[in-house]
């Protein structure tokens, strides 16, 4: 059954990726705010996702190798690690290009950049360990042990990284534009000042009619130190933000996400999002190409991973390391 499906699967992987390659430049429109560089997302996100998948696969097969001692388990783990290294490089390079164009810097120790840097270091260390050991049982065991030790350490990054830096340039709201984007609640009678990322926000005034709420918010730009007063508004009837105000000379926008409380004591949830991110994938053609790309790259990953693992397994057999 699976064997019969293999060839169609390979062909469709080729078709999917050909479509992505063509659509990325021909079909997908240039992004409104970001221009042509926005297209990079279609490659950047899937490769980043597969870097993490590769790490999990490698840890899983390392565990299996230690438990069952099968050559194929080790080959699977090595193949996944190789692909992880490759995809982490692709993801980093595409991300750095995007970052240079949009944010003005190749590298920023942004949380996700830190995470992928650590993954890359672990992949590199894995191969450094492997090459310094004579091929054989000991080599396979010790590299599996290292992969498992790394998989214990990496989850801590999830807790640690948000503490390293207050700001992320990465979108948390790219795909689903939810109210959970970076933001804060400003209360007219109490907390009128707060900080999102490095931007300091101050609620100066709230004007309210039956249908419309308009807040006057002072924003301090951390880069230049300039103060700007913005007046985002909120449609109380539809429950949607109305006027979305751009912070001048930045790629940030202020919008009111939610309003609660009564007219006398309002709490206003304000989001400060990257201009480029909101609606990065809202365009339908972009979204379709992105999803196809995600599928195509994942299929490619599985295909190359199986093939490489098979090859490594054969190699180990031929060289008689199956001790």
């Amino acid at each position: 059954m699976i064997r019969q499906l293999a060839t169609p699967a390979k062909i469709s992987t080729g078709l999917l990726l050909s479509f992505v390659a063509a659509a990325m430049f021909l079909w997908v429109p240039a992004h409104e705010g970001l221009g042509n560089v926005g297209r990079i997302v279609i490659v950047h996100v899937p490769t980043g996702w597969l870097t993490c998948v590769a790490f999990l696969v490698s840890a899983l097969y390392s565990l299996l190798y230690l438990r069952r001692g099968r050559l194929s388990d080790d080959a699977n783990a090595v193949a996944a690690t190789e692909l992880g290294l490759l995809f982490s490089l692709l993801s980093t390079v595409t991300g750095a290009i995007f970052a240079k164009v949009v944010w003005g810097t190749f590298w920023n120790w942004d949380p996700r950049e830190t995470a992928i840097a650590v993954l890359m270091l672990i992949y590199a260390a894995y191969f450094a360990l492997r090459t310094s050991l004579v091929p054989g049982v000991r080599q396979r065991r010790l590299s599996a042990i290292y992969a498992l030790l790394a998989s214990v350490s990496v989850p801590f990054l999830i807790f640690v990284i948000p503490r390293v830096t207050d700001s992320t340039l990465h979108p948390n709201c790219a795909i689903l534009n939810t109210p959970n984007c970076a933001g804060l609640a400003l209360t007219a009678d109490g907390r009128i000042q707060g900080q999102v990322d490095d931007f300091r926000l101050k609620l100066l005034d709230v004007q309210e009619s039956d249908t419309l709420l308009t807040a006057t918010i002072e924003v301090r730009d951390p880069a230049s130190g300039t103060l700007t007063t913005l007046q985002p508004s909120f449609d109380l009837v539809s429950g949607q933000p109305k006027a979305i105000e751009r912070v001048p000379d930045t790629l940030r926008e202020v919008q009111i996400k939610r309003v609660s409380g009564t007219a006398s004591a309002r709490t206003i949830e304000v989001a400060l999002a990257n201009v480029g991110n909101i609606g990065l994938l809202t365009d339908q053609r972009t979204l379709i190409t992105f999803l196809v790309s995600l599928l195509g790259f994942t299929a490619l990953f599985i295909w190359v991973w199986r093939l490489r693992a098979l090859l490594l397994g054969l190699q180990a057999h031929v060289q008689g390391w199956n001790a």
Binding site: V118, A125, S132, A150, L157
Partner: peptide, 18 residues
């Protein structure tokens, strides 16, 4: 493994970063 002293830092650093 061979190349022990160089390898130690390479292996330890990513694990100890958190």
């Amino acid at each position: 493994a061979d190349g022990k002293s160089a390898l130690f830092t390479v292996l330890a650093f990513p694990l100890l970063l958190p």
